[in-house]
Amino acid sequence: MEKYWLLKDDIPDFFEKFPHAGYTEQFGQPNVRIPKEDLAELFDFWKNHSKYPMDMLLDITAVDYLSSDFAEKPNLTGREEDLYSETRFDVVYHFYSVSTNRRIRVITSCGGEHPEVLSSYAWWKAAYYIEREVWDMFGIKFTNHPELRRVLMYEEFEGHPLRKDYPLMGEQPRVKLRNPEQEND
C-alpha cells in the first residue's frame, strides 16, 4: 500500500531534534505533539527539511477541549477554573510536501486567559487567512501575524463562536430585527 503520511519510522531525525515530542498513531495518520515554545524551531525544521520539505501549509485549525474527557487531554469538565486551563485548546497544523507527496500533522496546546501561539506567516503565506480564521473562531492569538483581525465574523461581534462555551444560538444582530408577525410596513 502506498504511503501518504510520515510515520515515526520515516522521520528519526525529527525525534532526535525534538526529544520531547509526543507521538501517537491513529487510522494510519501521525499525531505529533510538541510544546508551543518549540514552534519556531519546528517551522524551520519542516520548511527546510532535507528529505521531506514541507512546502505547503494545508490547514490550521483548533479544537476546544473544554468539557471533554478523552484523547490525550486532561479532564476538563467545564468548571470555572477549566476556562483558563493551560491545555484547553489544541492547535492543529497539517503540512504537505508537494515534491515527495507526504503529509504530517502537528499538534500543539495553548490556553490560559489569553491563549497565544507563534504565527507561521513568516514561513508560509497560507497562514494569513487561516490564522485569522482561528483567531476569529477560537480567540487564539498568533503572535507576529501582520494583521490579526476577524475574517468571517464582523468586527462588532463579541466572543468567539466555535469555543465550546459559546452558545449555538448566541446571535448578535447588527440591525434592529423586526417581528414579522406584528410590524407591517
Binding site: L58, D59, T61, V63, D64, S68, F70, A71, V92, H94, K125, A126, Y128, Y129, I130, E133
Partner: peptide
C-alpha cells in the same frame, strides 16, 4: 478534519476550504 469522542456527534468537524485559501 474530524475529532471523535466516541459519541454519535462529532466533537469537532473542520473543513479545509480550498477557495478560502485562494481568497487569502
Amino acid at each position: 478534519y474530524l475529532v471523535s469522542d466516541g459519541s454519535g456527534t462529532a466533537y469537532r468537524l473542520h473543513v479545509r476550504p480550498p477557495s478560502f485559501l485562494i481568497m487569502g
